[in-house]
Amino acid sequence: MHTHDWITTPLTAALVRGALELERTEHGGLLPHRLPARARAQCVDPQLALAESQPSGVRLAFRTRATAVELDTLPTKRVYVGAPPRPDGVYELLVDGRPHARAEARGGHTLTIDLATGATEHRPGRPATLRFTGLPDRAKDVEIWLPHNETTELVALRTDAPVEPVPDRGRAVWLHHGSSISHGSDAAGPSTTWPALAASRGGVELINLGLGGSALLDPFTARAMRDTPADLISVKIGINLVNSDLMRLRAFTPAVHGFLDTLREGHPTAPLLVVSPLYCPLHEDTPGPAAFDLGALGEGKLRFRATGDPAERAAGKLTLTVIRDELARIVRQRAADDPHLHYLDGRALYGESDYAELPLPDELHPDAAAHRRIGERFAELAFAPNGPLAARTA
């Protein structure tokens, strides 16, 4: 094919799914955000800024007869001082919902992070071009899932046939919030994070607000969810509150109520599922904060350890066991007045026997096989005909 055969289609919100806001950059590209500017202005935590700019669950979606697609992107690569190199983020192209091809973008910006000191350095880079070929020559839905763990600016889209937005298929929108596990840490690719797998099996449209390290009951996240159109909502609460050691039980209980109250302001009757933490031996009965295991880092491995003292539970320090018990109690209390509120024990998704079979490689995050299991189980439990998120998936 000659270059003059390419059709360039402007990148607009009509072609992007899963982002809450699109920022027009100085290069004329689009930077997807998973929290709106108002929320970002209320927190200067660099961890949150990094997490919300990583486009987990964000994808380009269009209808076309094209057999070849080119996408120019400007990724930001993360380098951790002293740690093994991170793999490049993966782009996955799906045709009518089925995997067709994978690609990686070389180059781009580089963000160097020193875990010991917290210091960062940003080096600018150049865009990369991804090319996907061999698509079937017929009208079809094409999705390009952006890397779930790599900040990605969209620069240009070219195809060898015209592109139009995917028509509304009438699928329910599922809005989910959680930690780095929901964000997709250690999944094989963006369409195989556990929420993406669950959404595919449940036949729903995913908006994934899994924010690595940042599922902290932040009021601005609750307001962003309140203001986002959605049919089905889930919130996975717990692990980040323990491993950041951010609050005690006295603050936790009203913060959960406040978060749920805010969600209900915008979605008074939507099915709402509260999910407690997955099984994680590190923090089942030992409070945080979690810390990098510097001994493992010295061997080129990334591993975490708990630094709290189990005796501190008496003073209100949080553990996963404490949080599960309290979340179950809160949901029971509220469900008396809210028949669309439900609770799911995270150990039903990944429990002690799963840890024995598919252990957490760094003691916190599931691997690709565990993501698949969690996604399949969530779909079975939540999206089943009699499940808590079934009411509006038809």
Rank of each mutant, 00 (worst) to 15 (best):
L241H: 04
R102W: 13
R86T: 06
H340G: 07
L232V: 00
H257P: 05
G170H: 02
G298R: 08
L94A: 08
P287M: 01
E121H: 15
M247P: 12
G375V: 03
A384M: 02
A255P: 15
A251C: 05
Q54M: 14
G213S: 09
R324N: 04
D96I: 14
A390Y: 08
T307N: 02
E299G: 03
L381N: 07
L50N: 08
L216E: 09
A215M: 12
E164H: 06
L74N: 07
G125H: 06
H176Q: 11
R158N: 14
P359T: 05
A394D: 11
L22K: 09
R226Y: 05
G82M: 14
K236D: 09
E23Q: 14
P287E: 14
T3R: 14
R63E: 12
L206H: 03
L175Q: 03
I113E: 04
P310S: 10
A61Q: 12
A101E: 06
H176T: 15
T192W: 15
P219R: 11
T133M: 02
V90K: 15
R226I: 14
A188R: 07
L389K: 00
F383D: 11
I181P: 10
P10H: 11
Y279L: 04
S180I: 10
G387K: 11
H340P: 12
T3F: 14
W194L: 03
A116C: 10
L278N: 13
A128K: 06
E121F: 06
A128F: 01
R123K: 11
E326L: 05
P339D: 12
R138L: 02
R63M: 14
D227Q: 04
A379L: 11
P268A: 08
A270N: 04
G346M: 03
D186W: 15
Y355P: 00
D45W: 04
A188H: 08
R131I: 01
A384L: 04
G184S: 02
L130D: 10
A41S: 07
F383A: 11
I7W: 14
F292K: 04
R334G: 10
A101K: 05
D72S: 09
R329T: 03
R24N: 01
H365Y: 13
S182D: 13
T253D: 13
Q42P: 00
E143G: 08
A103L: 05
